[in-house]
Design a protein around this nucleic acid. Sequence first.
DNA 1: TGAAATGTTGGGGCG
DNA 2: ACGCCCCAACATTTC
Length: 463
Amino acid sequence: MDNPALMKAAKSGALLPIYILDDETAGEAAMGGASRWWLYEALKDLDQQLEGHLRLYRGAAEDILPEVAKLYGASTISWTRCYEPWRTRRDRRISETLDQIGVTTIRLNGSLLWEPWEVLKKDGEPYRVFTPYYRKGCLQVEAPARPMTEKPDCRFCKAKAGDGALALNDLALVSPVGWHDMLEPHWDVSEQGAQKALSVFLEHGLDGYKAGRDFPARTNTSRLSPYLHWGQISPNQIWYALEGDAQMETCDAPDADIDHFRSELAWREFSYNLLYHNPELPRVALQSKFDGFEWVDDEAQLERWQKGATGIPIVDAGMRELWQTGYMHNRVRMIVASFLIKNLRIDWRKGEAWFWDTLVDADLASNSASWQWVAGCGADAAPYFRVFNPALQAEKFDPKGDYIRQYVPELARLPQKHLAKPWEAPEAVLSEAGVALGKDYPLPMVDLKKSRAAALEAYQALS
DNA sequence: TGAAATGTTGGGGCG
DNA sequence: ACGCCCCAACATTTC
């Protein structure tokens, strides 16, 4: 448990652990469906670890906290610092309010290796390009804090009747039956689950990570993103676990793999850096010339993408993985995003919104920074003309077709040669594999070559 | 953390 | 032996 805010509170006296579900202040930034399910499970786990002492609330934190503080006579309230713009603003207001009634507030970093204001260029400006941000910035300032290894020694204060706390189910995070039932078998939503995922990765994924991370059918990725997002593991714990410290997990993977994995952790930091210094990142293109881009507004097409019925196997496999598990392999995220933005020319914000609703690792910083990256409108973005060819990508990164076959089973019997673009397969091959295109599996919703050309033309019109 | 079009080179077949 | 053509295989440029 690497939670500085909890540790601080546990050391300063009797403890009243609180979680507030604050949709009211979040407004449009309120968390999506997959997140709510994960949160529901995570709160259950947390409450167990806190021996049933977790108090739950629902509403505007700036109204609730002062009330609770008064009722319990709290002297200090500490919490983990957040970086979403709406939370940053709210937390500042809360500190002011509590200060006025004599309650000390302490905000501590429990989720980033480096604070966004600590990694700046020599001229004091924030970095906008990843590589110098990481190499000249992060790696040259003070090393990340060592994770805390001792469990906080909690002495809880007695709950008071009428303190307004709710039962977990009253937070209405999940309905009794629903989509989340599908997610459940894929995840162990607990801190223990996070540690398990870390050791599985260190043992089986890290060796060969650098090359293997691009292949969705391999098990070289860590799948730690949801745990990181929800604070069930800290980036510091991961960072130092890679060192093979005597007290921590040992690790003997090649340096190139370790360095590359660390740089991926740093991409997360970079996203937070961008969001902190550009609060409009989730809604506004960093390159203003994209303001005039003419996006295609087509709900029916968007829905085909969302449901994994585009007729492009690698795209559909990715979108179905997302729907079934609340997760998608990173390489495939880039492919489906490129397809939506470039081949369909649908606004990146529509894709961002779908990911926000369906990913269990939905994270405002990473999600918005990454969508802008693919769209080519971000700070250090892929140039707009870098259009993925999803069929080529499939042949390159799913060479045996295992990933496509898993999530698009109706094509499972197609020979490898035709799996990436079934629309080019001879009729005899299709019927041999039991596939009637347009019936068992859709015809491609766009022509890849034509839609690529149309995208280039549309982008060209900008400048 | 592309892809496609275009340019260059060099080996082998062949008259 | 020689030049010519063809075309992989690579390299460079363009979008």
